[in-house]
Every structure is written in structure tokens, then in C-alpha cells.
């Protein structure tokens, strides 16, 4: 029982590490189109990349402070919402990250296929 708990915890930790880097790519890619937090989270979930609010919003702030995103408050459906979109710098970085991701994916596929 304890062993299976440890195994589960270990798996969750490793899964978290694996997802952490890819989340940035996913968020940047989704924000090629302007979105606010809630719709961004829904769009990610629909594409199979669930992310909780506690992770998403601090990540958005970090990416904005790094100059990869720009945001503005706007009223929509009678409520103020903060809309995010990729900055020009964010677009360049995303392009490079996507190339990197494809390279990693290709290498991993080759390595995994050997087994």
C-alpha cells in the first residue's frame, strides 16, 4: 500500500516536471489569438491540456513580465476582463520553442521506438 502510494507520488512529481515546460509552449500557442484567463483555460482543456487556475494566472503574469505577452483590461458582457495576447517578441520565442519541441519530440520518439 505504502509502496504503491510512493510510486503514485513519484509518478505525479515526474509528470508535473514533464508538463511544466510544455505548458509554456501550449499557453503561448493558444495566445496567438487574444483570450482572457477563463476562455484560455477552457481552450487548453478542450485540447487536452488541463491547467488549474492557481498555475495559469501566475504563469501568465510571469510571461507578461518577461515581455512575451501583452494584456489589457476591457469590458465584455458587462464584466471587466483581462485579455492576453502574444507580443512580437513572444511570437519569435514561440516559433523557436515550437522548433525545439518538434526536435525533442522527434528524438524522444526515436529513443522510445528502440525499446
Amino acid at each position: 500500500m505504502s509502496n504503491s502510494n510512493n510510486e503514485l507520488e513519484l509518478f505525479e512529481n515526474l509528470r508535473g516536471e514533464l508538463r511544466r515546460g510544455s505548458l509554456v509552449v501550449a499557453v503561448l500557442a493558444q495566445l496567438r489569438m487574444e483570450r482572457y484567463g477563463y476562455t484560455l483555460r477552457k481552450a487548453l482543456a478542450e485540447d487536452g491540456m488541463e491547467i488549474d487556475e492557481g498555475t495559469l494566472y501566475p504563469l501568465l503574469r510571469r510571461l507578461e513580465s518577461q515581455g512575451l505577452l501583452v494584456s489589457e483590461w476591457r469590458e465584455e458582457e458587462k464584466r471587466n476582463k483581462r485579455f492576453y495576447r502574444l507580443s512580437p517578441e513572444g511570437k519569435q520565442i514561440l516559433q523557436r520553442l515550437v522548433e525545439e519541441w518538434r526536435g525533442i519530440n522527434e528524438s524522444l520518439n526515436k529513443i522510445i521506438a528502440k525499446d
Binding site: 482572457y36 483555460r41 503574469r61
Partner: peptide, 8 residues
């Protein structure tokens, strides 16, 4: 931050 979380 509170405004954004409230909206969500």
C-alpha cells in the same frame, strides 16, 4: 490579481 481571479 483579485480582479482577475474574481472574473474567473
Amino acid at each position: 490579481i483579485i480582479a482577475e481571479l474574481s472574473e474567473d
